[in-house]
C-alpha cells in the first residue's frame, strides 16, 4: 500500500493565511482533499489522523453533513478554473446555486447577490457575464467566478489549490491580490496550496514546506525566505533563477522525490540531501519547533 501523506499536522487560525508549498507529487493536493473529505475512495482513504474544524470532530460526519460544510463553511478554489465550472450552465446559475442550496435564498435575492459577488471579484459588466457560459470567458475570468462561488456563503475557511497555476503571471498577481483582499475583509482563513515559493512571500502569514508527504519546515515567510533551516527549503530557494546571478550555476537538487510506495524509515530527504550524515539514513528526525513557531524536521538544521 502506498503512503501519500505520512503524518501531516497543520493548524490554521481565524483570518490567517497559510501556504502549503511543495513540488509535484509531495502530497499537497491530497492534503486539501483530505481536509474536505473528498479523497477518491477507493483507491485512497485516510488511514490515520483526525481533522477538527472549529473544535468540531469532522471524522464521524455523514456525507449529508459534509455537504452542508463544503461550499458553506469551507470554500474551495481548484487549479483549473475552466474545467471546474460546469460547461452547460451559465456562470450566474452556478454562483446562484450555492446561494440557494446553502443559504436558502429565493431566486430573486440570489440573483441580486450573485451580481454583487461578481462585481466584488472585479468582473466588468456583471449582468452580461452572469449570462455567459464558462467557455465564453477567459481563464482569469473563470477563476474570478470560482472565487465568487467559493466566497458566496462567506465560509470560515477557503482552500485554494494552485489557484493561479493555470494563469498568466500578470493575471496571477491580480487573482492573488483579490484573494488577499477578500480574506482581509471577512476574516476568512485561507489554505493556499502552491508549488511556487515566489507567490507566497507577500501574501501569507505562515508557510509550510511539504516533502514526500511530510512537513519538513514551517515558519513565518521571513523565517523561510531569510533563515531557512531545512536543506530541502534551502535547495528550493537556491534553485530559483534570477537575472542577477547569470553565469553562476544554479543549485539543483539531484535525484527525485521518493515514491509513495517506498517504505521510509529514515529522513525522507536523505537520498537527495547535500549534507546527509550516517544518522540521517538510519533514524527519522522529529519535527522540532522553536518558540517563535519556526520548526524543522532535520538532525542538522542550518543555524544562521
Amino acid at each position: 500500500m502506498g503512503k501519500v501523506l505520512r503524518g501531516v499536522d497543520l493548524a490554521l487560525e481565524e483570518g490567517q493565511t497559510l501556504a502549503l508549498v511543495g513540488e509535484s507529487g509531495c502530497g499537497k493536493s491530497v492534503t486539501a482533499l483530505s481536509v474536505l473529505n473528498l479523497l477518491p475512495q477507493p483507491p485512497m482513504s485516510k488511514t490515520a489522523g483526525r481533522i477538527r474544524f472549529e473544535e468540531r470532530e469532522m471524522d464521524g460526519l455523514s456525507e449529508l453533513d459534509w455537504r452542508r460544510v463544503r461550499g458553506k463553511e469551507i470554500g474551495i478554489v481548484f487549479q483549473d478554473p475552466v474545467a471546474s465550472l460546469n460547461p452547460v450552465f451559465t456562470v450566474g446559475d452556478q454562483v446562484e446555486e450555492a446561494l440557494k442550496v446553502h443559504l436558502g435564498l429565493t431566486v430573486a435575492v440570489a440573483k441580486k447577490r450573485t451580481l454583487e459577488l461578481l462585481t466584488q471579484v472585479g468582473l466588468p459588466e456583471p449582468e452580461r457575464i452572469a449570462g455567459q457560459y464558462p467557455h465564453q470567458l477567459s481563464g482569469g475570468m473563470c477563476q474570478r467566478v470560482m472565487i465568487a462561488m467559493a466566497v458566496a456563503c462567506e465560509p470560515k475557511l477557503l482552500i485554494a489549490d494552485e489557484p493561479t497555476t493555470a494563469l498568466d503571471v500578470t493575471v496571477q498577481a491580480q487573482i492573488l491580490d483579490l484573494l488577499f483582499q477578500m480574506t482581509q475583509k471577512s476574516k476568512m482563513a485561507v489554505l493556499l496550496i502552491t508549488h511556487d515559493l515566489r507567490i507566497v512571500r507577500n501574501h501569507t502569514d505562515r508557510v509550510v514546506i511539504l516533502y514526500a508527504g511530510e512537513v519538513v519546515e514551517e515558519g513565518m515567510p521571513d523565517d523561510i525566505f531569510l533563515h531557512a533551516q531545512h536543506p530541502y527549503t534551502e535547495g528550493l530557494l537556491a534553485a530559483m533563477p534570477t537575472f542577477g546571478q547569470q553565469g553562476k550555476p544554479l543549485t539543483s537538487i539531484e535525484g527525485a522525490v521518493p515514491s509513495p510506495f517506498d517504505t521510509l524509515t529514515a529522513c525522507v530527504f536523505a537520498d537527495r540531501c547535500p549534507k546527509v550524515q550516517e544518522k540521517c539514513r538510519k533514524e527519522k528526525p522529529l519535527f522540532e519547533s522553536e518558540k517563535n513557531g519556526h520548526g524543522v524536521r532535520c538532525f542538522y538544521p542550518s543555524k544562521k
Partner: peptide, 9 residues
C-alpha cells in the same frame, strides 16, 4: 519542478 528546472538550466 523548480529543483529539476535548475539542473536543465
Amino acid at each position: 519542478d523548480v529543483s529539476v528546472q535548475a539542473s536543465i538550466l
